[in-house]
Design a protein around this nucleic acid. Structure first.
Length: 872
RNA sequence: GCGAAAGUGGCGGAACUGGCAGACGCGCUGGACUUAGGAUCCAGUGGGGAAACCCGUGAGAGUUCGAGUCUCUCCUUUCGCACCA
């Protein structure tokens, strides 16, 4: 054994050992329980970032921990290789996205390998590989056959200068990121997947997913947004019939049908047919609709903008009173939700109330609180009354509770053929069309005479050409006749291939199945039945809704197609927090802000005693920088820490240990160079402890019954640390406290200088426990230390130790004594003492007596094994 | 705007089921060793107080023998909002 710890040599040797034995190749084996441990696949951006390191370290710790518990563990890796950044890189340096992506994958694969993850690399896949994405196309066509995939129009961000569709991310303050031109909303035809058909099941099965974090389940449930309500058709008044060109009705959905008599106006989205019809002869309204078209399509933007509206001059008729209600166009009504129209009930809806106040619309109270706490005559109006209550001013429906009124009104509407009860979801169908190059082609051919024609299965995959270079204006596929010119499969006439590609969420909705059978000639095969569902899935909280919901949907579709036998893809979910670091910036004279990496920032105390942060730059000399606080590590904030440099200077084990110790996995992690030093120091202390122990020669066999009190104490500390770490990793996924337990154990080992044969035997056991517990976290150094302790087995195949009940047993334990809830004494009682004895011992304590003397003891609360509270 | 989460020493965090607030680590202070220390080891380290003790988990109220933990109101920060992945 080397006297001092050399991480590079230790890690090289351990990795070589695992590689030579193909230690991480997972094979189907029906004799062992399987465990599929999966981390979300990375986007190949070029270099690993700390978020990746954190994600894959958590996965690797669990993989190795479960392997030590006898599971047949699969941990695969792949690349989410399609997407926008590759196109952006192509625009800035002219390299085709395919080449850029594959070079990035090669570099990042090497980086992952240097971290020593127990990955079965034989199963590696990249979503840009035709042998992968052909199955996106194949399943899309199956979904289309069932009506689960269909075409309709949707709204996108349009850059009028570049003549291109922009992603939400590419819209900055309502302007195109490259051109600076104000973005417009534009409607184009797109393909959708009917996820709403699964809304009910996606919602309902959340209740059974107890191993998902509560908050993720709540977020998904809210996203699906089931609401029970009522459809109401407001028939067009003659003016609206004339404008629209036919008789008909304005349909709305409401969860508050009980407030129907309080409707004083109607509001429709700017894209609504009634709005467009009214605008034909109304220049001001047309201008307002045009104004609503500005800005991006994101819900956040729509919801935070100033609520504006304009009357159309057209009317509908109240279904019961026949009273005319004017139709307004309002920018807060979303075309995508419900019918794109709402009934305005200012008295009982906050938003309608605000809108009515602004536009001088009447407010009519139709619900009062049952207790009378709400005064209908109250004036001036200050707020809407949005609670349930009892109806008033509602014709034949007056005097009912809100619930009864909703039932009665829905029934009456149904009798008149003007609506009825309905369940509405907030969830919308999933638009998968992207007007972009670097993605999976949608396998459709548009024929002048046959219309939309699916690409026949035998012509799949529709291969994406890899030599195009996007230039930022439009989709290069749409400018490439070699791609889009084709024959119609039906009539053999000349036709045009669809040039839109699929959302990359399609790839990530099923990639985890392909790992089970990467070479299958079908989309999936029987091996999926062995490995799936994923037992533990790990990834960023930012994926809590979209990716996870889409993957759940896709899985249910494949189940219903009879391809797989499970309906939920991920049994247990861990959502890891982000990695943060300090952000330092310098405001130059030109006004452009520059960011500096925290590693380059020097802190010194100025003459006035105040700390200042400075950076030395070649161009500007020494400049003073501002600490902007903590933020997610990112290129734009210049605060990333490169994992490669970290591995070079400290080793993979230090990086892994720090990341697992610095905070619980679900919380954000604040980067700390001192913390990294601390992790490195701990590993060296462990190394030194083993070195000193081993240098004294082999330890004799442990004889537990002959131990001295101090030897028993160390042995107890070792088994206690083991019991805690086992529970912390296995049940709680609380890696930081498991590591703390081992640190405490190493402190105990260090305090014990017992050189007797049994003293050394106890130390041998304690060290061997520490090393096995740390093995999943710092596998390389533990591999070396295990051998140094004299074990001939490979640590990677070793079983996790079991705490010895005899070692943990105690004769007495400590009880705390409170008087009136304040801590006053510690006492020690035999473990088998009964409640009366504990109570007596507590009251007998001199310090307790000091606070009890002269007062009447009203009550004594005894919590066995823990505490006594004397109430006086 | 809507949805979700988080606020505990100088810092990261611990306290798992309502029961000793601050485990473990960082930093800091003192000491040892050393030509030297950004190495290593030892001791100390929530605030106030000479002490007895008192105070202390974002703010305010409540429930309880007992609240960091439960309930309500508020404040701040972070994440998501459907075309970033």
């Amino acid at each position: 054994m080397q006297e001092s710890y050399d991480p590079a040599a230790v890690e090289r040797a351990a990795q070589q050992y695992w590689d030579e034995r193909r230690a991480f190749e997972a094979r189907e084996d029906s004799t062992r329980p399987k465990y599929y441990c999966l981390s979300m696949l990375p986007y190949p951006s070029g270099r690993l970032h700390m978020g990746h390191v954190r994600n894959y370290t958590i996965g690797d710790v669990l993989t190795r921990y479960l392997r030590m518990h006898g599971y047949n563990v699969l941990q695969p890796m792949g690349w989410d290789a399609f997407g926008l950044p590759a196109e952006n890189a192509a625009i800035s340096n002219g390299v085709p996205p395919a080449r850029w992506t594959r070079e990035n994958i090669a570099h990042m694969r090497a980086q992952l390998k240097s971290l020593g993850f127990a990955i079965d690399w034989r199963r590696e896949l990249a979503t840009c590989d035709p042998q992968f994405y052909r199955w996106n196309q194949w399943l899309f066509l199956r979904m289309r056959e069932k009506g689960l995939a269909y075409r309709k129009s949707g709204v996108v961000n349009w850059d009028p200068v570049d003549q291109t569709v922009l992603a939400n991310e590419q819209v900055i303050d309502g302007r195109g990121w490259r051109t600076g031109a104000p973005v417009q909303k534009r409607e184009i035809p797109m393909y959708y997947l009917a996820i709403t058909r699964y809304a009910e099941e996606l919602l309902r099965s959340l209740d059974t997913m107890q191993d998902w974090p509560e908050r993720v389940r709540v977020m998904q449930a809210n996203w699906i947004g089931r609401s029970e309500g009522c459809d109401i058709a407001f028939r067009y008044a003659p003016d609206a019939v004339e404008a629209v060109g036919s008789a008909g009705a304005l349909r709305v959905f409401t969860t508050r049908a009980d407030t129907l008599y309080g409707a004083t106006f109607m509001a429709v989205a700017a894209e609504h047919t009634v709005a467009l019809a009214a605008a034909r002869h109304n220049a001001a309204l047309a201008a307002f609709i045009e104004e609503c078209r500005r800005g991006s399509v994101t819900e956040a933007e729509v919801a935070t903008q100033e609520k504006k509206g304009m009357p159309t001059g057209l009317h509908v008729l109240h279904p019961f009173t026949g009273a005319p209600l004017e139709i307004w166009v309002a920018n807060y009504v979303l075309m995508a939700y419900g019918e794109g129209a709402v009934m305005g009930v200012p008295a009982h809806d906050e938003r309608d109330f605000e809108f009515a106040l602004r536009n001088g619309l009447p407010v009519v109270t139709v619900v009062r609180s049952a207790s009378g706490a709400y005064d209908e005559a109250r004036a001036p109006w200050t707020a809407a009354y949005a609670e349930y209550g009892v109806t008033v001013n509602s014709g034949e429906f007056s005097g009912l509770t809100s619930q009864d009124a909703m039932n009665a009104i829905a029934a009456a509407l149904e009798r008149k053929g003007l609506g009825g009860k309905r369940v509405q979801y907030r969830l919308r169908d999933w638009g998968i069309s992207r007007q972009r190059y670097w993605g999976c082609p949608i396998p459709i051919i548009h024929c002048g005479s046959c219309g939309e024609v699916p690409v026949p299965d035998e012509q799949l995959p529709v291969v994406l050409p890899e030599d195009l270079v996007p230039d930022g204006s439009g989709n290069p596929l749409a400018k490439s006749p070699a791609f889009y010119e084709c024959r119609c499969p039906k009539c053999q006439g000349s036709a045009r291939r669809e040039t839109d590609t699929m959302d990359t969420f399609v790839d990530s909705s099923w990639y985890f199945m392909r790992y089970a059978c990467p070479d299958a000639p079908a989309m999936v095969d029987a091996r999926v039945g062995y490995w799936l569902p994923v037992d533990q899935y790990i990834g960023g909280i930012e994926h809590a809704i979209l990716h996870l919901l889409y993957a759940r949907f896709w899985t249910k579709v494949m189940r219903d197609f009879g391809m797989i036998g499970f309906g939920e893809p991920f049994t247990r979910l861990l959502t890891q927090g982000m990695v943060l670091n300090d952000i330092y910036s310098y405001q130059g004279e030109a006004g452009r802000k520059r960011y500096f990496n925290p590693a380059d920032v020097d802190t010194r105390r100025g003459p006035d005693g105040v700390e200042v942060q400075e950076v030395v730059t070649p161009e500007l000399g020494t400049v003073r920088v501002t600490h902007e606080g903590l933020g997610k590590m990112s290129k734009s904030s210049g605060n990333g820490v490169d994992p490669e440099g970290l591995v070079e200077s400290f080793g993979a084990d230090t990086a892994r240990l720090f990341i697992m110790f610095a905070s619980p996995p679900e919380q954000t992690l604040e980067w700390s160079d001192e913390g990294v030093q601390g992790a490195s120091r701990f590993i060296r202390r462990l190394w030194n402890a083993v070195y000193e122990h081993v240098a004294a020669g082999a330890a004799p066999a442990l004889e537990p019954l002959t131990l001295s009190a101090s030897q028993r104490e160390l042995r107890r500390a070792a088994h206690q640390a083991l019991a805690k770490a086992t529970d912390d990793i296995g049940r709680r996924r609380s890696f930081n406290t498991a590591i703390a337990a081992v640190m405490e154990l190493l402190n105990s080992i260090g305090r014990c200088s017992d050189a007797s044969p049994q003293g050394r035997a106890v130390r041998q056991e304690a060290l061997s426990i520490a090393i096995r517990v740390l093995a999943p976290i710092t596998p390389h150094v533990c591999h070396a230390l295990w051998q140094a302790l004299g074990f001939t087995s490979a640590l990677v195949d070793e079983r996790w130790p079991t705490p010895d009940a005899a070692a943990l047993a105690q004769q007495r334990h400590a009880i705390v004594v409170q008087v009136n809830g304040k801590l006053r004494a510690h006492i020690s009682v035999p473990v088998d003492a009964d409640e009366a004895a504990v109570r007596a011992a507590a009251l007998a304590d001199a310090h307790v007596q000091k606070f009890v003397a002269g007062k009447a003891v009203r009550r004594v609360v005894v919590v066995p094994g823990k505490l006594v509270n004397v109430v006086v």
